[in-house]
Computed example of a mutant assay.
Amino acid sequence: MKPFTLILLAFSLYFSMGAYADSDVRPSQQVNELLDGLHTAASQANLEKYLDSFTANGVFMGTDDWERWTRPVTLDQYVSERFAGGTGWTYVPLERNLIFSENRNTAWFDEIIVSKKWGRFRGAGTVIKLDGQWKIAHYAMSFLVPNEVWENVSELSTEAFTERAKNN
């Protein structure tokens, strides 16, 4: 082979391997940055960054049965009110799992996050790539309950829902 052909082949191989590696790592990095950024924005009461993490019609599911907040109305209003005094909430991710669609434009995640005040939670949801940027389309938060205390927590929860139903 001629030297020019070898150089061209080497460059082609290098850039094709680089593109493969980038397509394999970059979406994971971007989604992790999005989710970490969401938690940082919440802890800093940064309204713009927090809401910008979601799609225009994104949904956040809280831990209570009535907590289903949608953009642009109920989620924006709730977060605006909570951040108004300059105070948000802090959850620190302990672990996160990502699964990507075949075309790598959709990902599903689950994460364990911790609040010093409230304990462990699981966040789970869907992120989508829109115009080259990852956004949260759906985020659901649940309170983690160790199996050893599940029965006690279940009783408390059942009692609270029964009482709530009586008062409504």
Rank of each mutant, 00 (worst) to 15 (best):
A56V: 09
N57H: 12
N57Q: 14
G58S: 08
V59H: 06
V59F: 10
M61P: 02
M61V: 15
G62C: 07
T63N: 12
T63L: 09
D64A: 11
D64L: 08
D64E: 14
D65H: 13
D65P: 13
W66V: 05
E67S: 07
W69S: 10
T70M: 09
T70V: 15
R71T: 09
V73G: 06
T74W: 06
L75P: 02
L75M: 06
L75Y: 02
D76S: 13
Q77S: 12
Y78G: 00
Y78L: 13
Y78F: 15
V79E: 06
E81M: 07
R82L: 10
A84Y: 03
A84T: 02
A84R: 10
G85C: 01
G85P: 07
G85Q: 00
G85E: 00
G86I: 04
G86A: 01
G88V: 00
W89Q: 11
T90D: 13
T90I: 01
T90V: 04
Y91R: 08
Y91P: 02
Y91C: 05
V92N: 10
V92W: 11
P93C: 04
L94E: 15
E95P: 14
E95N: 15
R96M: 06
R96N: 04
I99F: 01
I99C: 00
F100P: 04
F100R: 03
S101I: 01
E102W: 01
E102T: 13
E102Y: 10
E102R: 02
N103G: 00
R104S: 03
N105W: 00
N105Q: 15
T106H: 01
T106D: 09
T106C: 02
T106E: 03
A107M: 12
A107W: 04
W108Q: 15
W108G: 08
W108R: 14
W108F: 10
W108L: 14
E111N: 05
E111I: 03
I113W: 04
V114T: 00
V114C: 08
V114I: 01
V114S: 08
S115H: 05
K116L: 09
K117M: 13
K117E: 15
W118L: 11
R120Y: 12
R120A: 06
R122K: 07
R122G: 03
R122H: 07
G123I: 11
A124N: 12
A124F: 05
A124G: 12
A124P: 02
T126V: 09
T126D: 03
I128E: 04
I128Y: 00
K129Q: 08
L130D: 09
L130T: 11
D131M: 02
